[in-house]
């Protein structure tokens, strides 16, 4: 299959933002999409999304960014929307060690629902440097470890960024990086192979054992 991208078509990329409650996922999304920051905290219920168009290289991309709930009681509802994602943004709070410790389990849950995908790890709230609990080096090493452990046949990459949604530092770079990674992956993937037209899902059903979809079973359509 050809890996040459078709230049004119706008690509839709679905990005999921994950992480513990209160790490700043919603703030990051709003800062990136609307350049707005609201210091009042409002927990996300279930999931919500915003769309932003951007250009990556010469490709116009419509980035559909899904902000998910970090609260445990809304996780099941939120994770239903992971499917079909092209990449994920894992977020932790640099001032909360525990939120960094949970990043692995967020990634695991995402992989279960959406498969392995490129991702970026974001250490948010760098404006609170004096309260930092997670050193940059620790997070960077974690990313390196993930990159080293990945499946050789299905290589995904995790980049690390530090951001402050409040001060709008590093936000654009992180989202552009995840968009670029997702786009590159999409371009390098073979086009979906249509299933053989003779597939008959009802082959085990009595009266439709012929295997084709034109038997006399009333209607096999």
């Amino acid at each position: 299959m050809s890996s040459n991208p078709t230049p004119a078509k706008k690509q839709l990329l679905k990005i999921i933002i994950l992480g513990d409650s209160g790490v700043g996922k919603t703030s990051l999304m709003h800062q990136f999409v609307s350049k707005k920051f609201d210091s009042r905290y409002k927990a996300t219920i279930g999931a919500d999304f915003l769309t932003k168009e951007l250009t990556v290289g010469d490709q116009v991309v419509s980035l559909q960014i899904w902000d998910t709930a970090g609260q445990e009681r809304f996780q099941s509802l939120g994770s239903a929307f992971y499917r079909g994602a092209d990449a994920c943004v894992l977020v932790y709070d640099v001032t909360v060690q525990e939120s960094f410790a949970h990043v692995g389990s967020w990634m695991e849950e995402f992989s279960i629902q959406a498969g392995r995908r490129d991702s970026v790890l974001i250490g948010n709230k760098t404006d609170l440097e004096d309260r930092r609990q997670v050193p940059t080096r620790t997070a960077q090493m974690w990313c390196d470890k993930q990159n080293a452990e990945g499946d050789k046949n299905d290589k995904t990459e995790m980049k690390y960024f530090e951001t402050s949604a409040r001060e709008n530092t590093g936000v654009e770079e992180a989202f552009m990086a995840v968009a670029a990674a997702a786009l590159a992956r999409k371009a390098s993937q073979p086009a979906p192979v249509p299933p053989p037209s003779t597939v008959n899902l009802n082959q085990n059903q009595p009266g439709n054992a012929g295997g084709s979809n034109n038997t006399n079973s009333g209607c096999s359509c």
Partner: peptide, 30 residues
């Protein structure tokens, strides 16, 4: 001739066998 079960089977076939619009159209034609 066209029972609800058959209709359902048709739906199953359509919904699971049509990953692209082209496929949808083909299957719809069938």
């Amino acid at each position: 001739l066209f029972t609800n079960a058959a209709l359902d089977a048709a739906l199953d076939t359509i919904s699971s066998n049509l990953p692209t619009s082209e496929e949808v159209r083909q299957r719809a034609e069938e």
